[in-house]
Every structure is written in C-alpha cells, then in structure tokens.
C-alpha cells in the first residue's frame, strides 16, 4: 500500500441536510490527527460543501466552511471533485474554495484502481 497516502474519504452529502458531511469530515480529521495522510473526494451533493459563499444554517447549526478552511491545518490538501459532478450540479470551479482539483472521469476511476483504505460518507 502506498504509505504516502493512507486514506481516502469520500464525501457525498451536502451541508445542512444531514450530519453525514460533518461526521465524514470528523473521520478525516481524526485520521489526519493520528498522522495518516488523507485525500478527500467530494462527489455529487458532497461538492456543495466546498461552495465558498456558504454560511451558518438554522439556529445553532454550524457552518461547514470553517472546517473546510481548517483542513490544511491537518495537512489535508488533496481536495478532489469529479468534472462530472461540477457539470451535473452546474457549479463553476470558481465558486468553490481555493485548492480544489477537478478530476476527469478516468482520473476518478484511477483513484479507485489502486489499493487504499477508503471511507464512504
């Protein structure tokens, strides 16, 4: 196994709809805090977690953006989104936070073709 990248966490749920996003990011943060190298792949609705204009939600519901901004402090700097997701959701790359790398269809498949630990949220 490629030790330089121990874990890929897939995020597929949008902010403010469920706790999947927060708990998925928590898993990534804990792994990173334990010294694992973590890549995040945002698919489908999960890509909405990267919208740079998002705010806090209903009363008491924390915003996601501060956590996204914090990822680099945990050395999580691989943030990937499939091109296909950007097209389907009609979100331009420029509307997302900095540092997001879009991936072609074959690049996405390649992420799954080598053995690595994966959590899917």
């Amino acid at each position: 196994m490629d030790k330089s990248e121990d874990l890929m966490v897939i995020i597929r749920h949008a902010p403010h709809n469920s706790n999947w996003l927060r708990e998925g990011l928590d898993a990534a943060l804990v792994a990173a805090a334990f010294g694992q190298s973590v890549r995040l792949l945002f698919m489908g609705q999960g890509a909405l977690a990267l919208c740079k204009e998002q705010q806090a939600g209903a009363p008491g519901q924390k915003a996601t953006l501060p956590t996204i901004d914090m990822l680099e402090m945990y050395e999580i700097d691989q943030l990937n989104v499939p091109d296909q997701t950007l097209e389907e959701l009609n979100i331009p790359l420029a509307s997302l936070v900095n540092g997001v790398t879009p991936l072609s269809e074959s690049q996405v498949k390649a992420l799954f073709s080598q053995p690595r630990l994966i959590f899917n949220f």
Binding site: L29, G35, A63, P66, T67, D69, M70, M73, Y74, E75
Partner: peptide, 15 residues
C-alpha cells in the same frame, strides 16, 4: 475563532 473547533495536537503544532 477562525475554524470553530479546538485544534488537535498536529494542527496545533502547525499553527
């Protein structure tokens, strides 16, 4: 204040 979460050790060192 910036990230709304207290840092674990690794990000604390980095900050």
């Amino acid at each position: 204040a910036r990230y709304e979460m207290a840092p674990a050790m690794r990000p604390l060192v980095k900050a």
